[in-house]
Design a binder for these strands. Sequence first.
DNA 1: CAAGATTGAGCAATCAATCTTA
DNA 2: TAAGATTGATTGCTCAATCTTG
Lengths: 157, 157
Amino acid sequence: VSNESPWLSEQQQAFWRGWLAMSAALPAALNRQLQQDSGLSLPDFDVLVQLTDTPDERVRILALSDALGWERSRLSHHLTRMEGRGLVAREECADDGRGAFVVLTASGRDAIARAAPGHVRTVREVVFDSLTDEELDHLERFTTRVNARLAARDLPA
Amino acid sequence: VSNESPWLSEQQQAFWRGWLAMSAALPAALNRQLQQDSGLSLPDFDVLVQLTDTPDERVRILALSDALGWERSRLSHHLTRMEGRGLVAREECADDGRGAFVVLTASGRDAIARAAPGHVRTVREVVFDSLTDEELDHLERFTTRVNARLAARDLPA
DNA sequence: CAAGATTGAGCAATCAATCTTA
DNA sequence: TAAGATTGATTGCTCAATCTTG
């Protein structure tokens, strides 16, 4: 991989390695923290956040899969498991007979209420504390730009 | 999750969502690209990179698991699969009878040679193109800082 | 025939238990 | 007894096929 093709500069490599390490370690840490506090996994938490962010705690499944960036199939399997644990329930859709809703249950509401404070604290401590406005600005532009390029790359099949 | 506990500022939220989306989409894109070019997965590629980065293309398994940040068990399973496909081989360790080496095979060397140029091109196009030195500097300090905090969090069990 | 959603098979990752040698 | 590594069971993710309704 070395000198045959143009690789990256020293600093680019340092950042790339750091990014890869962080991409693996950060979700793992958040996951552990959630499991201990509430028995939820990080994907569980992500689903529940989407539900609590909506006024009536109900979301169409397709909308949910878009919001999470998950495949429909993955979401369906995951909802089945969460439903089995009583965290969410499915409901039929009156407007469109093909569609379905996911709704938050009382037990799901409990679980995320228990989980959220520790999660937020961890995210702040690890990621945001001592992050200057200028840095945050750079970071946000960076992720926005990369996401745009990834999206552009998927369209011209 | 809203006003019960102190969540994040608007800009922090924007970055955090962007970061989460990028963390899911970027590995997926790199994975697709590798699969098409060479039949390798991203984890396959990561393993092979570690082997090509060493002079004699041999690495101790524990060292490899540290370098990759993988659990030993995951690595062991993964090596078994890669060995089955002829990409790597295992060798006994003379110095320490408990230990083992992984070595690159000819076919593994071929595979990463086919895969690397396209991978590098994708990483540059998506991540590094039009990234200023100043931005790179911020990013690298950011990942370094976060990784340090994550490491510190694991020690005081 | 498209779109929303589910299913089942196959593959990958995690966790605890095990085996061997230092 | 601990370190290096593997194994088996469980769980989760992906891919292709399917079912139902618009």
